[in-house]
Design a protein around this nucleic acid. Structure first.
Lengths: 269, 269
DNA sequence: AATTATTGTGTGATTTGTACACATTAATTA
DNA sequence: TAATTAATGTGTACAAATCACACAATAATT
């Protein structure tokens, strides 16, 4: 009985796999030579993480990426690709750079190692093209999302930025550029919306800024600056069990935040 | 005698045209669906200009753009394309955004109006593709360059930003994005190197910043801030014939500028 | 009730930003 | 030749922001 179920499940799984495979790689409907790679940056109150996929039956780690349909806007493609490959939905994706070196994919050739691609000649041709890839980034709260590997991957995991495995192609460079981007644009990015839980302490907020800027900030001044923006509501105290005063919790005042001109969120130079 | 010469010249001209045409459009060696558009921003001590091309025998104005060869890095392609289409060389080109809306080229269809393309079926197919275009920008001193139209264009002209003709496709949006980009990154862009003559007055420098930021700045404070950076050398006075004190001329102290960390050029928020 | 670790807030020195005024200059002109 | 003029160069006073550091407040633990 159990064996039967297993067999049925196996066949079903294969079918599903074929279906999604077909669905995802209707090559004729894709723009040739164009790809998108997503740098999904997470945070868990301790450090920054990047979401990476491990290609099936290989040791190749990569960013979640994909291709653009002929009748699809590039920005929509980025959202759809992220959904297809990781299950993540409803994220704001920011385009940050386009990578077009001719040898950017020469470092590590997927087609040699990935059986699922190797079996299909047409697909192999497709993967061997030269691609120009546009990078999109998003900031997310790790606890609020549940990434799942797709048919091409057997893992979809958060890795700390400074302990990232070697990524295929030029994906290391893509990650680096994305991190630079958020550092430069930090003043205009409401990172406290994306990267923190709904309720958070000032210490957590400060650690987040410190993780991104990679430098220590003065606690007192940080707090004053943040609160002066007037977009945080102080809540009841946190129960944390330490032998000391428990910190206040804060949450975003969404109305106040909406009224605030984005240009005004200049926080640190 | 004169007529003979004219005829010979005419034949020669046709041949040259065919040759450069062939050279520029060896379609098999181009990446499909990929294009590059350049926003070349100039300045003449009065206002900002954009360099635009008028397509032969039409009223279509566009940014100088082109396609990428299969064995060419995208950044190099941008430089080469600008050279091919305008004759401008040795510019620093900054990638600023990639435009990928599916209907971005629907607004104005070149293939209908441009005879040189219309005559060649294969070429027409090529132009009718969907393209994703990456925008590059450069800041140049109008007096130091001499743009020339290429075989596809009968004009290559500087137009004041606020008197730009309607451009084809989404080129208006591309220009707008480029201007936003330099405004946001003004603090990190050494515009005084690119957009001014070697020797310039403080007033000229201030007008440049005002053109880019589109707001008035306080003269005294501007001057003090600029000079405090310590990268300008004061020269002898200008002879300008006005009934008043002639201003000092300044030039960049290249050594001092090199020593200055780019991060430190924070000038205006 | 004292201890302790941690958070919240205050202060003064310093730097930066802003608005405006005044001094300086040199070609023009009376 | 000296006053005029228009533009530039510099100073000053006040406000605001930044920075480093200190101290007060708090609540669980001892």
């Amino acid at each position: 009985m159990c064996t039967n179920h297993t067999i049925i499940f196996y066949i079903l799984a294969k079918k599903i796999k074929r279906m999604s495979f077909k669905k995802q790689f209707n090559i004729d409907k894709l723009l040739p030579g164009q790809s998108i790679d997503c740098v999904i940056i997470g945070y868990d109150l301790e450090e920054l993480y990047i979401l990476v996929l491990k290609w099936k039956e290989t040791d190749n780690w990569s960013l979640p990426g994909g291709f653009i349909y002929i009748d699809e806007d590039m920005d929509s493609a980025a959202v759809r690709i992220l959904k297809d490959r990781t299950g993540l939905e409803m994220l704001f994706l920011d385009q940050f750079h386009t990578f077009g070196n001719k040898d950017r994919r020469s470092k590590n050739n997927l087609t040699n190692s990935l059986e699922i691609i190797n079996r299909n000649k047409e697909l192999m041709q497709w993967f061997k093209q030269r691609f120009i890839s546009t990078g999109y980034l998003s900031l997310v709260n790790i606890d609020r999302c549940n990434p799942k590997p797709d048919v091409f991957s057997d893992a979809c995991e958060w890795k700390p930025v400074n302990k990232l495995p070697k990524l295929i192609f030029d994906h290391d460079a893509i990650v680096k550029k994305a991190l630079e981007h958020i550092r430069i644009h930090l003043n205009y990015l409401p990172v406290f919306i994306s990267l923190l839980p709904e309720k958070f302490t000032m210490k957590a907020l400060q650690k987040l800024y410190e993780s991104i800027l990679q430098k220590k900030l003065d606690r007192g001044n940080f707090q004053k600056k943040m609160l002066k923006m007037g977009v945080f509501i102080r809540l009841e105290k946190q129960l944390d069990g330490g032998a000391h005063k428990a910190p206040y919790l804060y949450k975003l005042d969404k109305e106040k935040y909406r009224d605030l001109n984005t240009k005004d969120i200049g926080i640190f130079s």
